[in-house]
């Protein structure tokens, strides 16, 4: 294999890993800060992808569809937190798993009723729909680079939000001492609602970005959900930075697994997880 093939696989690994990071970062925050195991997180990825599909068909513009989709998923996240998740904070993990598993079934059923069970493609916007030639017969699609770029921007924005803004400080403060944050006048419940909605919206956004390369299809959230939990566990529960590193590791393990050991590609990711957990049972980055 020549170097350009490696380059393509590396770019694919990064793009896949970063997309996974968008989903997993919300999951790790919701799990780490609010203590909720949210199995329906993958459903938001699916919902995002289907919103990209139906809203871009409606508006004829993927970016407009994504903008509308983000607004809708934030609203949906807020409503769900208010109606359901806010009642789960003090409950057992088993109850959380039951409720959120129920939500997966409901969302899949709704998807089937509204959009049917067919696989749909989502067109790539014309100005991103070309490839950069690498060698005479190898080229790389610009839309995938675009996905990586957007994900990196969001990762940077999240970092600034959590580390530099007062809201980010309050989130971190509430994470270690909820009562103290409250008695300084911080409305922790409102902040949790916001974090929850943002986490859900990030998963939906990842689905929207991915839709043109992955198509939209029934059950598409499930695979992503499982991998996201792997990322959360490897990265260390509650660590956004850990999620980024872990997501990239998974991206590389999965992509290169498929290239070098195609027969075992399915288990490459889980072998990596087992190895890392044997080495560091709390994940790469322990919760701050």
């Amino acid at each position: 294999m020549d170097a350009s093939v490696y380059l393509i696989q590396i770019l694919n690994s990064i793009q896949y890993g970063l997309l996974l990071f968008l989903v997993a970062s919300g999951l790790t925050l919701i799990f780490g800060i609010m203590g909720i195991i949210n199995l329906a997180h993958g459903s938001f990825y699916m919902i995002g992808a289907y919103m990209a599909f139906s809203l871009s068909a409606l508006t004829g513009n993927l970016f407009l569809a994504i903008l509308l989709g983000i607004i809708l998923s934030v609203i949906l996240g807020i409503v769900l937190e208010w109606l359901l998740f806010s009642r789960l904070y003090r409950r057992e993990h088993l109850e959380q798993v039951l409720l959120t598993f129920g939500l997966i079934l409901i969302f899949e059923e709704l998807r089937s009723i509204i959009a049917g069970d067919d696989v749909h493609g989502v067109p790539i916007p014309a100005f991103l729909n070309y490839s950069i030639p690498l060698t005479e017969n190898q080229s790389y699609p610009v839309y995938r680079l675009f996905i990586s770029g957007v994900c990196l921007l969001i990762a940077g924005a999240m970092y600034l939000f959590i580390q530099r803004t007062r809201l980010g400080m309050m989130i971190r403060a509430g994470n270690t001492n909820r009562e103290m944050a409250q008695s300084l006048g911080v409305n922790i419940n409102l902040i949790y609602r916001l974090v929850f909605a943002l986490g859900m919206a990030l998963a939906a956004f990842a689905g929207m970005l991915a839709a043109p390369v992955s198509s939209v299809f029934p059950g598409m959230g499930n695979q992503v959900l499982i991998l996201s939990f792997v990322v959360v566990v490897i990265g260390g529960i509650g660590s956004v930075w850990g999620a980024l590193v872990a997501a990239l590791l998974i991206g590389f393990a999965d992509t290169f697994g498929k290239v070098f050991v195609p027969d075992y590609a399915g288990i490459a990711v889980y072998l990596l997880m087992a190895a890392i957990l044997l080495w560091r049972p709390e994940g790469l980055f322990r919760r701050a």
Binding site: R166, M169, A173, N177, M180, A181, V186, A288
Partner: peptide
């Protein structure tokens, strides 16, 4: 005391400002 150990001194102060 109940300081936030994961926040810097400055962040402990700034997060409370009102």
């Amino acid at each position: 005391r109940g300081i936030f150990p994961n926040l810097s001194v400055r962040e402990n102060l700034v997060m409370a400002a009102r």
